[in-house]
């Protein structure tokens, strides 16, 4: 009885079902292909995945607030480009990192201002900046060959080791913890959920909806900038078209993790678990020699199955909680506002 209650409560936490599925998939792939969990392979694929995971988290924050950001992919590419460009011009690593993150910040600010000040739809604004950032990267790569940088310390951002663990892992982990803390423990973070659930209600409650929305786009831009820095460090060179197409992987990953496109529901862990799931699937199929022409079908199936699975599990878990409430056993206090929202409406989207 007690176990059941605990189980349903754990399962109802955003991102837990997908995390369990992720563990199962990893075990299956490890059985199918023993090289899957060798240190080299894990290191490679996590390194490949981290920039996209940062984008996934950024997009997830925007989605939680009820918006969407299509520009993250090419903005990350352009940030990688500006990072490399400052390095090629002989700047030290710190300046380059700041330039990259700053590029993301500028684009995030631009997106946010266009959306909140001019009231233009976020899909179209970020589609426009997707093109603009992609175009600027092409122009940049045509002016300067973005490669051949030997600045000490720059490649260590991804390839260095701290306590035996690759530094990219640390950077990503710190960013994720900070973001989750920010989202759950700060007033601003809670407001993001509030405007995602019901912007007008939040407005009535005194939340400056526009400012919070602007904040989410800036955050997403900064994370895209950070992703760009990591991309540049990992690749050691930057190419036109870098990052294009990443936006859809990021959005799919966030949704797979249980972030609701209707807004108001999601967490950093959920987005990371969803993004890792997509990366793991790709790596696993690759290491089993599956022709990539099958990837899009398998990924599509997985997204469908994942989202359906996530919804069903959560519904089951919540109905379990509700039933016990009716029968009078100790009601577990709703721990987040999203859960209360779910209980009230009984559906998630």
């Amino acid at each position: 009885m007690n176990f059941q209650r605990t189980a349903s409560r754990i399962l109802s936490v955003n991102g837990v079902p997908i995390a369990i599925a992720l563990v199962i998939v990893v075990i299956i792939f490890q059985i199918m292909s023993p090289v899957f969990l060798t240190p080299g392979s894990v290191r490679d694929y996590i390194n490949n995945a981290i920039p996209i995971l940062l984008l996934t988290v950024g997009v997830a924050i925007v989605i939680v607030a009820g918006g969407i950001d299509l520009s993250v992919g090419t903005v990350a590419g352009l940030s990688a480009g500006t990072t490399m460009w400052t390095l090629v011009n002989g700047a030290p690593t710190l300046v380059a990192v700041l330039t990259g993150v700053g590029t993301g910040l500028v684009f995030g600010l631009f997106n946010g201002l266009m959306i909140t000040r001019f009231g233009i739809n976020d899909f179209i604004v970020t589609l426009a900046t997707l093109n603009i950032a992609g175009g600027l990267l092409i122009v940049l790569t045509e002016q300067v060959p973005l490669q051949g940088v030997t600045t000490p310390g720059f490649s260590d951002i991804v390839y260095g080791n701290v306590f035996g663990i690759p530094s990219a892992f640390w950077i990503a982990a710190i960013i994720f913890v900070l973001m989750q803390f920010f989202l759950v423990k700060t007033v601003f973070g809670r407001r993001i959920f509030a405007i995602g659930i019901a912007p007008s209600a939040a407005n009535v409650a005194g939340v400056n909806v526009e400012r919070v929305r602007l904040g989410t786009f800036v955050l997403s831009g900064v994370l895209a900038g950070a992703a760009g820095v990591l991309l540049a460090s990992r690749l050691g060179s930057v190419q036109a078209f870098l990052g294009s197409g990443y936006e859809f992987i990021a959005i799919a990953g966030a949704v797979l993790g249980g972030v609701s496109l209707a807004g108001g529901r999601g967490s950093v862990w959920a987005a990371v678990a969803g993004g890792l799931m997509l990366a793991t699937l790709q790596q696993g199929l690759r290491l089993n020699g599956v022709d990539p022409v099958y990837f899009s079908i398998v990924t599509g199936l997985c997204i469908v199955a994942g989202v359906v699975f996530d919804r069903r599990i959560q519904q089951l878990a919540l109905s379990g909680i509700r039933k016990r409430r009716r029968t009078g056993s100790a009601p577990p206090p709703p721990d987040t506002s999203q859960e209360a929202h779910l209980l009230r409406t009984g559906k998630q989207d």
């Binding site: 292909s33 090289v35 060798t38 080299g40 392979s41 490679d44 694929y45 490949n48 590419g77 973005l146 490669q147 051949g148 690749l235 050691g236 060179s237 930057v238 190419q239 036109a240 078209f241 870098l242 990052g243 294009s244 790709q282 790596q283 690759r286 290491l287 020699g289 990539p292």
Partner: peptide, 30 residues
């Protein structure tokens, strides 16, 4: 952009292929 090819080549390395033919748009230095 060639980043997908990077992943593919890494996969071949992990699985210890004998030889790999690559054509990629990724930068030569990468």
């Amino acid at each position: 952009s060639g980043t997908e090819t990077l992943g593919i080549v890494q996969g071949y390395i992990a699985r210890q292929f004998d030889a790999v033919f690559v054509c990629s748009a990724a930068n030569a230095s990468t």
